[in-house]
Amino acid sequence: MLEVVDLRSGYGRIEVLRGVSLEVRAGEVVALIGSNGAGKTTLLRALSGVQPITGGEIRLLGARIDALAPHRRVERGLTQSPEGRQVFGPLSVEDNLRLGAYMRRDKEIGADRDQVYAMFPALAEKRRIAAGSLSGGQQQMLAIGRALMGRPKLLLLDEPSLGLSPLLVDQILAAIVALRGRGITVLLVEQNAAAALEIADRGYVLETGRIISTGPGAALLSDPAVKAAYLGAD
């Protein structure tokens, strides 16, 4: 599904991604964990094309996409729910979802929207409300729903549990597991490493712009080094 080879990116002279290579296979949920400033968000933005890269390759379904504009990548089935939700605040919930399908010209947009509402009933009740006045958890659902409206083959989720109550975190994670059931491949970035690795098939650990460890989710969970660094255990 997604192959990233030796990806490099940065801000000015500061290199944030220093040769990242990873792979996400079709139907997988892959977790990318790492501390603050490791480069997780930069990586996802580079994948979506909103962060310039200085080297390396990105392949989606076998084809190079690293030179494509962001909207061309959406067209090819790569969408993202960005860090910090980033909903279109003044627009209604419904309009936010409609814009998630901005690149689509088919007739099933309404049906997909209803599917998002079925997945997150809280959004259905607020469909006419401005997205900016939703609670944090609802905004997160909206951001995920909006990314789903693009009919992704690969969905990038950046910190979907950030700032949410434990109950809501469980609800969001359950939604991600449900997405896998629908055949959507997910690359999940999380600071909440334990929760992410629990639902992930595989995981990567990113540290200061490099992948330092990888393996099945359960194996990383029990890896002493990962435990010490990211899971807060002794």
Partner: peptide, 15 residues
């Protein structure tokens, strides 16, 4: 309007 509200998100949905 979406671009005005949030340019990053607008680009991410393909605008």
């Amino acid at each position: 309007r979406a671009t005005a509200a949030n340019r990053l998100a607008a680009r991410l949905v393909g605008i």
